[in-house]
C-alpha cells in the first residue's frame, strides 16, 4: 500500500503541475482528494491492515493528501496571479489623457480681502457690524461732527435721495449707530465693512461705488499709542511681518488728532520705486482718536471714555496687494479678471 500511495502522490503532483487553468486544477482536486478519489479508497481499505501497519499507513496517507493539497493550492495561486496580471494588462488606460474637469468657482477679490481683514480683527477681539447704505444725513454727517454747512462736506460729494436721506459716503455711520446701541457705557471693539457711494465719475482710480472697512475701539483709557500698536499688528499681518508703518497728520471731522497711515512699500522694501512714487511709503489708512463731540453725541462721556477709529478702502488695498491697475475691474466682473484670484 505504501508504494501505491507514493505512486498516487507522484501521479497527482505531476497532473497538478501540468494543469494550465483553474478548471483542470479543480478536476485534479476532485479526482485525487474527492470522496471517491483513490486516497479515500486507500483509507477505506485500512481495515484489512494489521494494527501495527494501520497508523503508519494512515499517517502516510494523510501526508500524501497534504502534499497534494499544498501542490494544488500553490498551483492555484500561481494561476490566479497570472489571470489577474492578464486582466490588469487588459484594463490599462492612457493616463496622459486629460482628467474630467471639476467646475471651480471662487470668491470675488474684494470678498477675499474683506474676509482676510475681518479674520485679522476677529483674532484681535473685534466684532463685525453692518448698517444701512441709504443713510440719514444725521448718521452720515451730523453724528460724525459734520454739521450742515461744514466745509468738510465738500470732501465727499454725495448722492442724495431726499433732503435728509443719502447713499452713505462712508461706513462711519455704522460707528455712530454702534455707539448708540452700546448705550454709552460699554466698551466697543468693532469693524464695519460695507459699500459706500460718492459722486465720482468712474475712471481708473475713481468709482462711484466702492468698499470701505472702518474700525472703532472705545474704552476707558484708550491711547493713541494703542492705535499705533493695533495698526502695526494689522499691517504686518496683511502685508508682511517686516512692514513698518508711519503716521502723518491729517484731518477728519470725526477724529482729533487725525492721521493718515503709511506702510513701507512692499515692492521696493521702502527703498523707493514707481509704485510708492519714490517715497518708500504707501498710504493705506485714515485714522485718529474719536472726537469728543462724536463720543458725546453718541452717548459716551469723553471724560470717561476715549477711543480710536480707522478706515481703509478695500479696492485700494486690493490694488496695492495684487497690483490691480484699474478700479473698474472690480465691478466689471470680467471672468478673466475674477478667475485670476481663485485658488481652484
Amino acid at each position: 500500500m505504501r508504494e501505491k500511495l507514493e505512486a498516487l502522490q507522484a501521479e497527482a503532483i505531476e497532473k497538478v503541475q501540468s494543469s494550465d487553468n483553474l478548471q483542470s486544477l479543480q478536476d485534479v482536486r476532485v479526482a485525487y482528494l474527492g470522496k471517491k478519489g483513490p486516497i479515500t479508497e486507500v483509507l477505506r481499505g485500512m481495515g484489512k491492515l494489521s494494527p501495527e501497519e494501520r497508523p503508519v499507513i494512515g499517517e502516510l496517507a494523510n501526508k500524501v493528501r497534504e502534499a497534494i493539497a499544498t501542490a494544488l493550492d500553490n498551483k492555484k495561486n500561481l494561476l490566479e496571479e497570472a489571470a489577474l496580471n492578464e486582466q490588469l494588462q487588459k484594463e490599462a488606460i492612457d493616463v496622459t489623457l486629460p482628467g474630467r474637469p471639476v467646475k471651480a468657482g471662487g470668491p470675488h477679490l474684494l470678498t477675499s480681502i474683506i474676509e482676510e481683514v475681518e479674520d485679522l480683527f476677529l483674532g484681535m477681539g473685534f466684532e463685525i457690524k453692518e448698517g444701512p447704505e441709504v443713510e440719514t444725513d444725521y448718521f452720515n454727517f451730523e453724528a460724525l461732527n459734520l454739521p450742515q454747512d461744514h466745509p468738510a462736506r465738500d470732501m465727499q460729494d454725495s448722492f442724495y435721495v431726499t433732503d435728509h436721506l443719502l447713499l452713505r459716503t462712508q461706513t462711519s455711520p455704522v460707528q455712530a449707530r454702534t455707539m448708540r446701541e452700546y448705550d454709552g457705557n460699554k466698551a466697543i471693539k468693532m469693524i464695519c465693512p460695507g459699500i459706500v457711494y460718492r459722486r465720482d465719475t468712474d475712471d481708473a482710480t475713481h468709482s462711484h461705488q466702492f468698499t470701505q472697512i472702518e474700525g472703532l475701539l472705545v474704552d476707558k483709557n484708550v491711547r493713541m499709542s494703542d492705535l499705533k500698536g493695533v495698526l502695526l499688528e494689522f499691517s504686518r499681518k496683511l502685508f508682511g511681518a517686516d512692514r513698518e508703518i508711519r503716521l502723518r497728520p491729517s484731518f477728519f471731522p470725526f477724529t482729533e488728532p487725525s492721521v493718515e497711515v503709511d506702510v513701507t512699500c512692499k515692492v521696493c522694501d521702502g527703498k523707493g520705486c514707481n509704485v510708492c512714487k519714490h517715497t518708500g511709503w504707501i498710504e493705506i489708512l485714515g485714522a485718529g482718536m474719536v472726537h469728543s463731540n462724536v463720543l458725546r453725541m453718541s452717548g459716551y462721556d469723553p471724560e470717561e471714555y476715549s477711543g480710536f477709529a480707522f478706515g481703509m478702502g478695500v479696492e485700494r488695498i486690493a490694488m496695492l496687494k495684487y497690483g490691480v491697475d484699474d478700479i473698474r475691474h472690480f465691478y466689471t466682473n470680467d471672468v478673466r479678471f475674477l478667475s485670476q484670484y481663485h485658488k481652484a
Binding site: 470675488h108 470678498t111 457711494y197 461705488q209 465691478y331 466682473n333 475674477l338 481663485h342
Partner: peptide, 11 residues
C-alpha cells in the same frame, strides 16, 4: 458648486 462671485453696482 462652480459659481464665481460677482459684485455689481447697486445703482
Amino acid at each position: 458648486a462652480g459659481l464665481m462671485e460677482t459684485i455689481t453696482y447697486s445703482l
